[in-house]
Computed example of a mutant assay.
Amino acid sequence: MPFTPFHMGAGLAAKAAIDRHFSVLTFGIAQIAMDIEPLIGMIRDADVLHGPTHTYIGALAIGFAVILVSPFICRPILRRYNYEARAMRASWLACPEHLSKGAVALGAFIGTLSHVLLDSLMHADVRPFWPVSNSNPLLGLVSVDAVYQLCFWLGAASAIAWLVGKYRHGRENG
């Protein structure tokens, strides 16, 4: 799923489930980092768009890189987000500006590993278990349309659940 927002459905589900222990921004950064290789492949008109980065080993390496850069990217975004939430009198939506190392790590690794899993279901050039195997036993287990629908509805339901949880928590503490 290069360059689609659908991967974020998994990230929103994790955010709704474990909120402050998971950085959805880091998850998003991981999605972008994962799709750099397909972008380069598209620019170069390569036959294979999903190479080493779309393996579980490659995803772990990218996850570690995301852990290093994510705090520097997330802090100003969170600062601005919180400013806007407060300006719109929606302080209950504010988030901590300092992300724990655990939240960043979970965001990075759930982001990169789920990316490989989802892309394995739909792209013939993904070899998720390389170098152990060149096969992709996940390809075609479900239709591409089903993957998109799952990601969309999971994201929509999880975003609503997160908002309701934030609102309830804000009312209890406000």
Score class of each variant (00 low, 15 high):
Thr4Gly: 01
Phe6Thr: 09
Phe6Leu: 11
Ala14Tyr: 09
Ala17Gly: 14
Arg20Ser: 14
His21Gly: 06
Ser23Tyr: 02
Val24Leu: 10
Leu25Trp: 09
Leu25Gln: 03
Gly28Pro: 00
Gly28Ala: 10
Ile29Lys: 03
Ala30Asp: 02
Ile32Pro: 00
Asp35Arg: 05
Ile36Ser: 04
Pro38Tyr: 12
Pro38Cys: 10
Pro38Arg: 10
Ala46Asp: 14
Asp47Ile: 07
Val48Asn: 01
His50Glu: 00
Gly51His: 10
Pro52Val: 09
His54Leu: 03
Thr55His: 01
Thr55Glu: 01
Thr55Gly: 02
Thr55Pro: 02
Gly63Glu: 00
Ile67Leu: 09
Ile67Cys: 14
Ser70Asp: 04
Pro71His: 07
Phe72Val: 08
Cys74Ser: 14
Pro76Cys: 08
Ile77Ser: 04
Leu78Met: 15
Arg80Asp: 09
Arg80Gln: 12
Tyr83His: 11
Ala85Phe: 10
Arg86Phe: 06
Ala87Tyr: 11
Cys95Arg: 15
Cys95Gln: 14
Pro96Met: 06
Glu97Arg: 11
Glu97Pro: 10
Glu97Tyr: 10
His98Thr: 12
His98Val: 12
Leu99Lys: 11
Ser100Asn: 07
Ser100Asp: 08
Lys101Thr: 14
Val104Tyr: 00
Val104Ala: 00
Ala105Pro: 05
Gly107Val: 03
Gly107His: 02
Ala108Ile: 06
Ala108Cys: 08
Gly111Asp: 01
Val116Ser: 05
Leu118Pro: 03
Leu118Gln: 03
Asp119Val: 09
Ser120Leu: 00
Leu121Thr: 04
Ala124Leu: 12
Asp125Asn: 06
Asp125Phe: 00
Asp125Gln: 03
Val126Met: 08
Arg127Gln: 11
Asn134Thr: 12
Leu138His: 06
Gly140Thr: 10
Ser143Gln: 00
Tyr148Met: 13
Gln149Tyr: 15
Leu150Phe: 15
Leu154Ala: 15
Leu154Phe: 07
Ala156Thr: 13
Ala157Val: 04
Trp162Val: 07
Leu163Gly: 11
Val164Lys: 13
Gly165Lys: 13
Lys166Asp: 08
Arg168His: 15
His169Pro: 01
His169Ala: 15
His169Ile: 09
Gly170Thr: 06
Glu172Asn: 12
Asn173Ile: 11
Asn173Met: 10
